[in-house]
Each structure stands twice: as C-alpha cells, then as structure tokens.
Computed example of a mutant assay.
Amino acid sequence: MKQFWDLLIYEGMDYPGNVTLPAALHDTKRIDYYRSYLINLKKAIDDRVNVVGYFAWSLFDNFEWRSGYTSRFGLVYVDYQTLKRYPKMSASWFRNLLQSKSN
C-alpha cells in the first residue's frame, strides 16, 4: 500500500518562443535544470523521502494549451512542418546519465 509521502514526479522546463533548430538542439539550460533537479531529488531520497518514480517532461516537443507550439519542452525537437525528430543535447545527457554506473 502506498503511503501519502510516496512521490511520483513529472518535471521539465521549456524554452519559450520560437526557437531555431540549432538553438533548440543546444539546450544546455535544460541540462543544467535537470542536473540541479536530480541532485536535489537525490538529497531528498537520502533524507528518506520515498520517491517511486521520476519522468522528464516531455520526451517530444508538443502542443501546450497556453503557448501552442511556441514552447519547447521535449528532449527531442519536432519539426512541426515535416514531423522529423531531432534528439537534443539533453537527450544524450539523459542517456549517458542512465547508462552510467554511478547514477
């Protein structure tokens, strides 16, 4: 039975406004955001918070109710004209984090 302090977290950050493909792929602010968030999440776990899951919001750039298609949340850039997908630096960073032995 889950306790009320069990946490399942969905977290992310956007790049507001229309962003060019090269700028979107070089998303160092998103990497910094996730790194900082996960460091603090690890501290909470060390303090015995029962974190049962974590999900980066979101895998792909998508439609946002307040911003339409102008905010980029995803780890993967979506060209809305062609629907072609381009992994961002943050996707590589997450992959490396998940594959590392010290995570």
Rank of each mutant, 00 (worst) to 15 (best):
Y37M: 00
L38K: 03
L38S: 13
L38G: 12
I39Y: 12
I39R: 13
I39N: 13
N40P: 05
N40R: 04
L41Q: 14
L41N: 15
L41R: 08
K42F: 06
K42N: 07
K42H: 13
K43L: 04
K43P: 11
K43T: 15
A44H: 14
A44T: 06
A44L: 15
A44F: 09
A44V: 13
A44D: 14
I45P: 06
I45Y: 09
I45C: 01
D46P: 01
D47M: 02
D47Q: 11
R48K: 14
R48L: 14
R48Q: 15
R48I: 06
R48F: 13
R48V: 11
V49G: 07
V49H: 10
V49L: 08
V49I: 15
N50I: 01
N50D: 07
N50V: 03
N50Q: 02
V51A: 02
V51Q: 05
V51S: 06
V52H: 04
V52K: 13
V52D: 03
G53E: 02
G53H: 05
Y54L: 03
Y54G: 04
F55A: 12
F55S: 14
A56G: 05
A56R: 08
A56W: 04
A56H: 02
W57L: 00
S58H: 02
S58M: 10
S58R: 01
S58K: 01
S58D: 10
L59V: 13
L59S: 11
L59W: 12
L59K: 01
F60Q: 01
D61E: 08
D61A: 05
D61I: 03
N62E: 15
N62C: 11
N62H: 10
F63Q: 05
F63R: 06
E64G: 07
W65N: 11
W65R: 04
R66A: 10
S67V: 03
S67C: 04
S67T: 12
G68R: 07
Y69M: 00
Y69I: 01
Y69V: 12
T70D: 07
T70E: 09
T70G: 06
T70L: 13
T70W: 02
S71V: 10
S71R: 10
S71W: 02
S71P: 11
S71A: 14
S71H: 12
R72S: 14
R72P: 00
R72C: 09
R72D: 08
F73K: 01
F73S: 05
G74V: 08
G74A: 10
G74Q: 08
L75F: 08
L75C: 05
V76A: 10
V76F: 00
Y77K: 06
Y77T: 10
Y77Q: 09
Y77M: 06
V78N: 00
V78H: 01
V78S: 06
V78I: 09
D79V: 02
D79M: 09
D79F: 08
D79T: 07
D79N: 12
D79E: 08
Y80F: 15
Y80G: 07
Y80H: 04
Y80T: 12
Q81S: 11
Q81G: 06
Q81N: 11
T82D: 04
T82W: 01
T82S: 07
L83C: 02
L83H: 09
L83M: 13
K84W: 08
K84R: 15
Y86L: 09
P87A: 10
P87R: 00
P87V: 06
P87K: 01
P87E: 05
P87Y: 12
K88T: 06
K88F: 03
K88S: 02
M89K: 15
M89Q: 15
M89Y: 12
M89T: 07
M89W: 11
